[in-house]
Write a protein that binds this DNA or RNA. Structure first.
Length: 896
RNA sequence: GCCGGAGUGGCGGAAUGGCAGACGCGCCGGAUUCAAAAUCCGGUAUGGGUAAUUCCAUGUGUGGGUUCGAGUCCCACCUCCGGUACCA
């Protein structure tokens, strides 16, 4: 046989694995509880099968997980390593608009390309578990989970202990268990249903949404940045529309706190916590524009009634994280959309306020946030009374206050809040200092140039003067609470998840709207039964967007859109579709049991396989996908469908691969590397090896074509170690010997076993590869090479470069795949060296290196060092103050 | 602005507080060859010294500090990358 020829060996081995079902993972027999195997579930973030095929970023994470899986199998673990397709989404539909090709056709073609490319790279996926979010058998269960969300309300005060044994407060419970107030019950069945609908985790809401005319869809807040769509950078406008929402905010606390136990990068946990944005503060009520007498009366009433759930119409409720600055309030601000604006605005200001509100409503998010450097606002003419000191403060409207956070209104403390400060400066509103710096110097922060936003000691705050910010907060919150004027409150930046899209190529909702005799929706809904799922897509020829927020599916045939229920009620189908996130929220569950036709996952298999032990993917999913999936998982957990609260135990983000010029790879930059080309020229093993050798998995790193050459040469050297490359036939290299290996070869081998094993465990693949390179460099220089040593080495190499390893294994006498050969064991006695090289330092500076017998005591080491000529020279004429010696490691003389 | 992460040869990168630069690329020299490709061997941080060497000095973004000893720990700063942005 000639030289190393990747092309000749790779395809046959891929076919071998396929015909022998080498990587098929049987679900274990869980009825025999005494014999449950040790499992490992290793998952890649499944790709969106785009039309342009695999790029080099994909194989990076996939190779990493493949190495871990191949290694774990050899270690005897029962490994689950599946692959699938996140295949709903806009591009296939946009293609349909252009060409008339049905999205399903395009999707299937793209999946074929991806599948071919992944198989070409020799990944050890269990292809029998392949799934696509677009399979009716898959989205049947996506729809089923939606029905679970629809059937669940969040009981925030519910105390319970889950199957994981952890006590929690707050649980998603069946909607049938929602307590119905008597007065609602008294209003009849449809009132009850409407009441229930308000509490479901999946609910319909009419709210301003991000409508993107160019894409023809509504987008989630998360998909919009700077007033432009994440995808395509099209302008986005605000529009009130009826939309499906998922009540993810109900789970905000648990989503934040249960991050703690996860083995995730701290940065990702931090981003999620930030996104959730939990803050603790107080809600405080201000009475609007009243005479002192009625203010006193109101306080008396509140003293008795306590703090009401909903404030009286004449009361302005604010949320603040700094209740300790209440004495520094010099004005109030309402969001322009706030319902009290009409109540509070005086006739004199009505025109100005109306104009400002009009302008604000037209402003895109871009103008309202990014460009709004200068604060704007209008005085309403109205006043509110500060509950702590009775001070009358003006009420403004301004768009720096957002309607959908807190109560949509704030108390403004310009002395101690940057935004309020800027606003007050702009409009000449007084600034009052109520916090002094806490360093005890009594120094007064200068409020002439900036607000003082740090904590400190209270001043100008009546009876609270001298309290620290922290004590003040606790004290005043409790005072307000006792007098019915305020209460502690928690807020989140996280908003409910806008869950509907107006596209064809997404999961249809399993929901019907009831119609009255005029064919108008009554607002009441009916869910499809679980047995009737999936709701399939209607047949359509025309995929052009409607051009309005009206969903694509509204153009579906009548027989899909309408039906009459058994009770004679006319029903119209929900015509929105689900967002792409839906399918990826639970695919890790289906992989465990992808053929199950009666459950979305068998409960015992869920207990066995979950959680995912290692999940690798790009950091771009740090917030959205991972937060959404965790949310769904928790709902399923509360409803008893899964046994653990978190789906992904360990998460690793692979770093992006840049082009050779160090820039992000893109067509426009012309620096895209195509995996197909690399495989054609060097083979899959070289591509895999190179992507792992480039640098640490999590690091961003540039592609280097010469680096691919390097690993390719390494594989060629390994090949020649074992094969006689000058022979025409496949013949072992004449240096190979059946005789027992030399001690030196064994020492090098076992050091390599130890290093490669440790490095794989640490996911430090680049150093593992360099250790194998060192081994092959050493072996090349050996005149006779032990066959056994080389066989062991081939096993070490096999997770990284499985094709060449299989080929060499068979040449060395293997009769079947090496995929389940036991992983080599490091024998410690071969790690012990006879002699060690010890550095000798004088005053911390390296002066000499001594080769000494291993196992010297520190005294012996010192004696040996002092006997060395160079050391003597450096110690000559000096006094030894101290000697620091670490046996077998180093020795340092401290001299004067 | 704020929050993360990272700054080490010509390049990618390696180093449980203990020999800085493993391994690979590139480059230089040599072997093999009619020649080339491929392959193999040696060298390669910077400056200086020597006939020569296991010689000397400097060196991990900058400036301080802790330590017998710092790329590694602490403080301040600079640069780059990523995230985020009126959330009261």
């Amino acid at each position: 046989m000639p030289r190393y020829d990747a092309k000749r060996i790779e395809l046959p081995w891929q076919q071998y694995w396929e015909t022998h079902q080498t990587f098929r993972t049987q679900n274990p027999d869980l009825t025999d509880t005494s014999n449950v195997p040790a499992k490992l579930y290793v998952l890649d973030m499944f790709p969106y099968p785009s039309g342009s095929g695999l790029h080099v970023g994909h194989p990076e994470g996939y190779t990493a997980t493949d190495i871990v899986c191949r290694y774990a199998r050899m270690k005897g673990k029962h490994v689950l390593h599946p692959m699938g397709w996140d295949a709903f989404g806009l591009p296939a539909e946009e293609h349909a608009v252009k060409t008339g090709t049905h999205p399903r056709i395009t999707t299937e073609q793209n999946i074929s390309t991806f599948r071919r490319q992944l198989k070409m790279l020799g990944f050890s996926y269990d292809w029998s578990r392949e799934l696509s979010t677009t399979d009716p058998d898959y989205y049947r269960w996506t729809q089923w989970i939606f029905l679970q969300l629809f059937d669940t309300w969040y009981d925030a005060g519910f105390k319970w202990k889950g199957p994981d044994g952890v006590a929690r407060v707050g649980k998603g419970r069946p909607i049938s268990e929602l307590p119905i107030p008597t007065e609602v019950r008294g209003q009849g069945e449809s009132a009850v249903r409407r009441y229930q609908d308000r509490y479901r985790l999946a609910y319909v809401s009419e709210a301003p949404v991000n409508w993107c005319p160019a894409l023809g869809t509504v987008l989630a807040n998360e998909e919009v940045t700077d007033g432009k769509s994440e995808r395509g950078q099209h302008p986005v406008t605000r529009l009130p529309l009826k939309q499906w929402m998922l009540r993810i905010t109900a789970y905000a606390d648990r989503l934040a706190s249960e991050l703690d136990e996860l083995a995730w990068p701290e940065s990702i946990k931090y981003m999620q916590r930030n996104w959730i944005g939990r803050s603790v503060g107080a809600e405080v009520d201000f009475l609007i524009d009243a005479a002192t007498s009625s203010f006193d009366l109101w306080k008396e009433t509140r003293q008795k009634s306590g703090f009401p759930e909903v404030p009286e119409p004449s009361v302005l409720r604010v949320y603040t994280t700094r209740p300790d600055t209440l004495f520094g309030v010099t004005y109030m601000v309402l969001a322009p959309e706030h319902s009290l604006v009409d109540v509070i605005t005086t006739d004199a200001q009505r025109a100005a306020v109306a104009e400002y509100r009009q302008k604000a409503s037209l402003k895109s998010d871009l103008e309202r946030t990014d460009l709004a450097k200068d604060k704007t606002g209008v005085f309403t003419g109205g006043y509110a009374i500060n509950p702590v000191n009775g001070a009358k403060v003006p009420v403004w409207i301004a768009d720096y206050v957002l309607i959908n956070y807190g109560t949509g209104a704030i108390m403004a403390v310009p002395g101690h809040d940057e935004r309020d400060y800027e606003f007050a400066k702009t409009f000449g509103i007084p600034i009052v200092q109520v916090v002094a710096s806490a360093d005890g110097s009594g120094s007064v922060p200068d409020l002439e140039t900036a607000a003082y936003t740090e904590v400190g000691i209270a001043v100008n705050s009546g009876e609270y003067n001298g309290l620290s910010t922290e004590d003040f907060k606790t004290r005043i919150t409790s005072h307000l609470s006792k007098s019915g004027l305020g209460r502690e409150a928690v807020n989140y930046r996280l908003r409910d998840w806008l869950f509907s899209r107006q596209r064809y190529w997404g999961e249809p909702f399993p929901i019907w709207h009831e119609l009255d005799e005029n064919g108008e929706p009554t607002g009441l809904m009916r869910a499809d039964s679980a047995e009737s799922l999936p709701v399939l897509h209607p047949h359509m020829e025309d995929f052009k967007p409607t051009g309005t927020p009206e969903p694509m599916l509204a153009k579906a045939p009548q027989e899909w859109l309408y039906k009459t229920d058994s009770d004679g009620t006319r029903l119209k189908r929900e015509t929105n579709s689900m967002p792409q996130w839906a399918g990826s929220c639970w695919y890790y569950l289906r992989f465990c049991d992808n053929k199950n036709s009666t459950h979305f996952i068998d409960p015992d298999l869920e207990k066995f396989w979950l959680p995912v032990d290692l999940y690798i993917g790009g950091a771009e999913h740090a917030v959205l996908h991972l937060l959404y999936a965790r949310f769904w998982h928790k709902v399923l957990f509360d409803r008893g469908h899964v046994s653990r609260p978190e789906p992904f135990h360990r998460l690793v983000n692979q770093g992006m691969i840049l082009g050779e010029n160090g820039e992000k790879m893109s067509k426009s930059r012309g620096n895209v590397i195509n995996p197909d080309d690399i495989v054609r020229e060097y083979g899959a093993d070289s591509l895999r090896l190179y992507e792992m050798f480039m640098g640490p998995l999590e690091q961003v790193k540039p592609w280097q074509m010469s680096g691919v050459e390097g690993v390719y040469r390494f594989l060629g050297r390994v090949w020649r170690l074992i094969i006689d490359d000058r022979s025409e036939e496949i013949v072992l290299n004449s240096s190979l010997s059946d005789a027992p290996a030399s001690d030196e070869q064994l020492r090098v081998l076992h050091k390599t076993i130890r290093a490669v094993t440790d490095d794989i465990e640490r996911l430090s693949f680049n150093t593992a590869i360099s250790r194998m390179m060192e081994f092959s460099n050493f072996m090349s220089s050996q005149e006779t090479r032990s066959k056994e040593v080389l066989k062991t080495f081939v096993l070490l190499l096999s997770p990284f470069a499985p094709h060449i390893a299989e080929e060499l294994w068979s040449v060395l006498g293997g009769t079947t795949t090496l995929a389940y050969e036991p992983w080599p064991v490091c024998v410690d006695k071969w790690l012990i060296e006879d002699t060690v090289e010890v550095p000798v330092q004088v005053n911390g500076k390296l002066r000499a290196k001594l080769v000494v017998p291993a196992g010297l005591t520190t005294d012996q080491l010192q004696a040996a060092a002092e006997a060395d000529e160079i050391v003597r020279r450096n110690l000559d004429g000096k006094t030894i103050v101290k000697v620091i010696a670490v046996a077998g490691r180093m020795i340092n003389f401290v001299v004067k």
